[in-house]
């Protein structure tokens, strides 16, 4: 028996919004430590890794490890039926071929359940090595989203250059060129507004704007985003989900042809 309850459906809606542009389907691996999903986009350029810890749920029960392959478009249809303040419970029997989403209104007067067929997905799991990154940038997630949106107008690719002075995002194309420089903040009123840079070695890498923009769909999950970079390895874009876990996107860099 698997059962996981969240007090507010909003968080699940936001998580789905953060992955459904990149992935058509995904396998949710459930164990007593929580729920994990790891999947590559169709082009095998990026990898999404979602971790939701069992202690972050209002209720969590997982008697036997189960893997539930879900069509994320279908899951989105179901979650649309939940109000933001509804409690959501995800339930499945051991070896079941369906999963049930149950939504309860705050006053418990309306209860709805939606059963969805599970899919058998033959997904490859990749081992991600522990890496000490040359540069780790933390910045407001809305600022990162804004920069990705703005620079995507100029080119398919964006250069991210990180030094101890700051981080610079650049794009150039037929229209002209764009550069956005962010310096480390010295003092801020709110921690969420801070830009911080931990640098061992300066790094310059090129990435596809389309994927970066897809990652920024996770912005509503967290006030801050963390970018981890080293030469010639994938960028990690991480959004922490408060008290519940995180979503990490890995993006392969572009290289000179």
């Amino acid at each position: 028996m698997f059962e996981a309850r969240l007090i507010s459906a909003t968080i699940l809606k936001k998580i789905l919004d953060a992955i459904k542009d990149l992935l058509n389907e995904g396998t949710f691996d459930c164990s007593d430590s929580g729920i994990q999903l790891q999947a590559m986009d169709n082009s095998h350029v990026s990898l999404v890794s979602l971790t939701l810890r069992s202690d972050g749920f209002d209720k969590f029960r997982c008697d036997r490890n189960i893997s539930m392959g879900m069509n994320l478009g279908s899951m989105a249809k179901i979650l649309k039926c939940a109000n933001n303040d509804d409690t959501v419970t995800i339930k499945a029997q051991d070896n079941a071929d369906t999963v049930t989403f149950m939504f309860e209104s705050p006053n418990h007067e309306k209860v709805s359940d939606y059963e969805m067929k599970l899919m058998n997905l033959d997904q490859e799991h990749l081992g991600i090595p522990e890496t000490d990154y040359s540069c780790v940038v933390r910045m407001p997630s809305m600022e990162f989203a804004r920069i990705c949106r703005d620079l995507a107008q100029f080119s398919e690719s964006m250069l991210i250059c990180c030094t101890k002075e700051g981080v610079k995002f650049s794009a150039s194309g037929d229209v002209g060129s764009a550069n956005v420089k962010l310096a480390q903040t010295s003092s801020v009123d709110k921690e969420e507004e801070a830009v911080s840079i931990e640098m061992q070695e300066p790094v310059t890498l090129t990435f596809a704007c389309r994927y970066l923009n897809a990652f920024t769909k996770a912005s509503p999950l967290s006030g801050q985003v963390q970018l981890s970079m080293s030469a010639d390895v994938p960028l990690v874009v991480e959004y922490r989900i408060q008290d519940l876990g995180h979503i990490r996107y890995y993006l392969a860099p572009k290289i000179e042809d």
């Binding site: 590559m40 095998h44 350029v45 799991h125 990749l126 081992g127 090595p129 392969a252 042809d257």
Partner: peptide, 14 residues
């Protein structure tokens, strides 16, 4: 001209 690399070339299959 830049070439997009594949994510699988960086990670090992489990």
């Amino acid at each position: 001209k830049t070439k997009q690399q594949n994510i699988m070339s960086f990670f090992t299959k489990k």
